[in-house]
């Protein structure tokens, strides 16, 4: 085996995206005369996304998943830790190179498209930014991509306000894919859409993943969607990933009490089961005031003394890990 071939093989085996012990804090003011406080949005998160995987990232609002996504896209520098895309640290890469590798699809297709630009212009923008071709080639590429995501070519000169929510989300997907990125970060891609449109978009995302060999990081609070799409799931709570496992393992035997509560909260359309009692209490997690010890302990049904003072360490379990004193050696 030659040295060159070895390098190519290494590149193929390299993780698509890797976050190593990434943290991000914000300084926020809490009042006119009060001192600024530190908001720990993401704390010591490590995440590995291999080529071809669909990694689901679940958690409630304010758990830091959007901040993490912004860092992974290279839009926000981490305060601590390192992010690598296809083996290369993003801190050293120009933004345009990151843009070629990683692209986002956002939640709200009403906000993610510039209302003053035509559909064609919106999807052409990524090509324009990367440069290096002429407008006739661009137009052909854009129309081909529109067809691929299920948009009629005739919509090229129309404006976002003329399109339905589902069509708009298809435009956003076309814009993300036109430069053929390797990884797409989907931040709640269907939560603003109607049920029947959601299934169309999910089907489209699956189809595109197979056809274009994409890797997804799927951020969602809808566990049914994550279960349907993801091969691996990471559960985030107040800035940390508290459990990570294969989708099957996680849904069959959730380990962390928070994951258990999340899964119990999924309301499947099965009449007669009633609404489950999640036993979480009415306390709400506040990222400005992270509890000492295990950050989940004020809401945990299995809380022990040690949870209030000592932060649990990740414990390997199967393919993933869980961060909970119930599973560690005491």
């Amino acid at each position: 085996m030659t040295a060159a071939a070895l390098t190519a093989a290494q590149v193929e085996a390299a993780p698509m995206l890797e976050a190593r012990d990434v943290s991000r804090t914000f300084r926020v003011s809490t009042g006119l005369l009060k001192p600024k406080r530190t908001l720990q949005a993401v704390e010591g998160v490590s995440l590995l996304v291999r080529p071809g995987e669909v990694v689901g990232l679940v958690g409630e609002s304010g758990c830091g998943k959007t901040t993490l996504a912004r860092m992974l896209l290279g839009l926000l520098p981490p305060t601590d830790g390192e992010i690598r895309v296809v083996g290369r640290p993003t801190a050293a890469l120009p933004r345009r190179t990151i843009a070629q590798l990683v692209q986002p699809v956002f939640q709200d297709p009403y906000s993610s498209l510039n209302p003053r630009k035509s559909i064609g212009a919106i999807i052409t923008l990524p090509l324009r930014v990367q440069g290096g071709s002429d407008s006739a080639t661009w137009r052909a590429q854009v129309e081909e991509m529109m067809e691929r995501v299920g948009l009629a070519r005739s919509l090229y000169d129309n404006y976002p306000s003329q399109l339905s929510g589902g069509q708009r989300q298809r435009v956003a997907i076309a814009r993300a894919l036109i430069n053929r990125p390797r990884l797409v970060i989907c931040d709640e891609p269907t939560s603003a859409l109607d049920v029947s449109v959601q299934s169309q978009i999910l089907n489209l995302l699956q189809e595109l993943r197979r056809d274009l060999g994409l890797t997804y990081l799927l951020i969602s609070h809808n566990l049914a969607v994550v279960e349907h799409m993801a091969t691996r799931v990471a559960v985030m709570y107040l800035g940390r990933i508290v459990e990570e496992a294969d989708t099957d393992a996680l849904f069959r035997a959730p380990k962390h009490p928070y994951t258990q509560a999340l899964l119990a909260s999924v309301l499947t359309p099965e009449p007669g089961l009633g609404v489950p009692d999640t036993q979480l209490g009415a306390a709400y997690p506040n990222p400005l005031d992270v509890p000492p010890g295990c950050r989940f302990h004020p809401r945990c049904a299995h809380v022990m003394d040690i949870c209030r003072t000592v932060a649990p360490k990740p414990v390997a379990s199967g393919e993933g890990f869980v961060e909970c004193h119930l599973y560690g050696t005491p």
Binding site: V195, S199, L202, N203, Q206, A224, E227, H228, T268
Partner: peptide
């Protein structure tokens, strides 16, 4: 029937399989 077929249900719909859709508007 279409609506019910549209939603993924953990344990019932097959992972990655196409979900039901309601065409048109």
């Amino acid at each position: 029937r279409g609506l019910i077929a549209c939603i993924p249900v953990p344990g019932r719909t097959r992972r990655g399989a196409a979900l039901g859709t309601i065409p048109g508007m």
